Computed example of a mutant assay.
Amino acid sequence: MPTIHVVYGWHMTSGPLRNLDLNLLTALDALLRERNVTRAAEQLGLSQPAVSAALRRLRRHFHDELLHRTGNRYELTPLGELLREPTTTALAGVARVFDAIPTFEPATATREFTFLVSDYAAMVAADELVNTIEEQAPGVRLRLQQQVAAHVDQAPESLRTVDGMFLPHGFLSDIPSIDVFTDDWVLIVSRDNTEIGDTTTLAQLSEMPWVVTHHAPTAFTPAVRQLRLIGIEPDIRVVVESFLTVPFMITGTHRVALLQRRIATRLATPADVRILPCPWDVVPLVEAFWWHPTHRPDPAHQWLRHLLRTQSQPDPAATALR
């Protein structure tokens, strides 16, 4: 049986962790993210000398500077860069250990759920979820974190540090999910675009300039996939990182975009755009909530998943791991 050491309230096993204060993990996380002792101290609510002392201890442990000055700013060493993601993941894991509860009572619970979301998912899915949670669990808070391509590309690791991710089917596999709602696709053009009537043709679309979102080798939306499935390689003139921006990049131009109906309907009037039907059979979008298997036994997360299933509007043809 391994010897147990206690350091500042943390239980330490023998081996590499012996005599190491795991409270340094929070300091390491702040230093690697802020790349500045003063800002890290402000974030942690500690004095600058205390964080400087923590940095010295971390440097001795890793035999590496971690932060080094370049001109008027600090940069991470190669090891510092390597430690950024696993440090955040480890800190989230430690927090979950000490946040664990045997039961979850929504009416009295105080808990924060963190989701990775696009602005589209925040507007459509999280909006209804927030209202439901406010009614059932007034002490629960939601943190909606902006989703980026790296979160999707590294989903198994990304999902370890959050409670879940809202993302359409077609990007992830072998990860538990719950279908939340379905949507379809529409075309949008400027209201003053006289070259396009109430309908359009594939020939016209192949010649028009396009606005798309997240267009990169590993970052794309189903809209681009839809176009390529029907043999259209869009003439992409504008690429944006926000779905909410798309209609406003159409206003007053001859551009066209393929957008989710739910968001197009909400923004058509303020953006002064028209909604047109697609001249082909579109494949519906099925938005799902994806979560890491380690959350399965957590009573709070079980309640959250039940809530999502209760208010979901899934496509019967879509499949998901339960």
Rank of each mutant, 00 (worst) to 15 (best):
A90Y: 04
A40P: 06
L22M: 15
E81P: 01
R191D: 01
R296G: 00
V37R: 08
L116K: 13
L24C: 14
D21I: 06
E128Q: 08
T294V: 07
F115N: 00
G80F: 07
A288D: 04
T87F: 06
G170D: 08
L22I: 14
H292Y: 00
L55G: 08
M12R: 15
E195L: 13
R69A: 06
T265K: 10
P49K: 10
M249C: 10
N131A: 15
R35D: 11
I232Y: 01
R141Y: 07
E75Q: 15
H306M: 05
A257H: 05
H11Q: 08
P86E: 06
Q204Y: 05
P293C: 06
R73S: 02
V189M: 05
T114E: 07
F243I: 04
E85D: 06
L244C: 05
R33P: 03
R261K: 11
G252R: 07
F115L: 11
A122G: 14
W291E: 05
S242A: 15
L31S: 04
G231F: 10
A100I: 04
L307V: 10
E112V: 14
L229E: 09
I275R: 06
N72E: 07
D174F: 08
R261A: 11
E134D: 10
R237N: 10
E85N: 12
H61M: 15
M1C: 15
M249E: 03
M1W: 15
A27C: 11
E233R: 15
G93A: 13
R60A: 08
G139I: 11
V140F: 06
A223F: 00
Q313K: 10
P270D: 01
D198G: 09
W10H: 07
F98N: 09
V273D: 02
R262V: 05
V186G: 01
W10C: 14
V273E: 02
S242Y: 13
L172R: 00
T253Y: 06
L159E: 01
T87L: 08
A271L: 02
Q43R: 10
A40H: 03
Q204S: 12
R255A: 06
T77Q: 07
F171C: 14
V186Q: 00
P78M: 12
